[in-house]
Design a protein around this nucleic acid. Structure first.
Lengths: 154, 154
DNA sequence: GTGTGAGTTGAAGTGCGCTTCAACTCAAGG
DNA sequence: CCTTGAGTTGAAGCGCACTTCAACTCACAC
């Protein structure tokens, strides 16, 4: 039929709201040609780009980092399967790390908080470094405090 | 010495900024007595409360849910080890679920995106239900779209 | 008594990832 | 040609979890 998609079609097929697609375009994550009347027309390959963006978000990557990753794709040709595989592989380590941290947290939760001691220093539970907290939270301008004194409640 | 803590002391021992502690108080997550001159004085048991809050955040729980959980603690007496254990256990399932989803995502990433197909419908990767995306992100007033049409790029 | 660092408040700002709105134009079917 | 749904823009708003600021007061060591 048509080899390009309107914003509504891309939205329906990707499950991403039109407003989000426009937002992605402003950030340089996707691109669209324009009709004579200034409407967006997306190449079908943008569908895969959008899919990649949403998956990367699930992995916990910020839009800015996703943009940087997408910039490493070849600009001259449509990305191949191998190109996408390479990019996906780069999130893989991150995902592994997140899983590792969460698993550790779970084990500590069982062994340490489970016992009620909540001794956050001995248990590595409450370790400010290598934390996985605060994904997509707010302003974090203060430098992270070192918890200099250690925590041993009650 | 003293059996109550100033905000600076609680901050140093918990690793949480004073501004955050005041914010927690506004939300009803911690409480403090006041001196004659209106300064906060925290009971030592608040230290454990703050620790619990930070750990729950790592598990991915919002402050509002944390508040609700803390309200289930006995108000009349200082919570016991068993009280904390019960609360912690309630996060456990959530943590398990997050780990499960992330692990699934990782496996799918290897098997599906890894091959470059990115066929987001067949692969369960891009499944809007049971997503773990968007923790702590922004306004989400639009109801989530069902991706009615299915995604099969290129 | 006095200086100084620590504490107080409310209001406003920040960063992210969007959504919402108003006012307008486009594209396609009848 | 006309209607109507889909698309356009910039500016503003939202929700979360805070931080920052200004203007002020407290507590304590000397």
């Amino acid at each position: 039929m048509h080899d390009s998609l309107t914003i509504g079609e891309l939205s329906a097929r990707s499950g991403v709201a039109p407003s989000a697609l426009r937002y992605y375009e402003r950030l340089g994550l996707v691109r669209a040609d324009r009709t004579g009347g200034n409407q967006r027309r997306y190449a079908r390959s943008e569908l895969r780009r959008v899919a990649f963006i949403r998956i990367a978000q699930q992995v916990g990557v910020s839009l800015d980092e996703i943009r940087a990753a997408l910039e490493s794709l070849p600009a001259s040709r449509t990305p191949t399967a191998a190109d996408w595989a390479r990019l996906s592989a780069s999130w893989r380590g991150r995902l592994d790390e997140r899983i590792r941290l969460l698993t550790k947290l779970r084990d500590d939760l069982t062994g340490c908080i489970g016992c009620g001691c909540l001794s956050l220093q001995r248990c590595t539970l409450y370790n400010p470094k290598d934390s996985l907290a605060a994904e997509g939270a707010g302003a974090r301008l203060m430098q992270p405090r070192p918890a200099e004194d250690g925590v041993t409640p009650s």
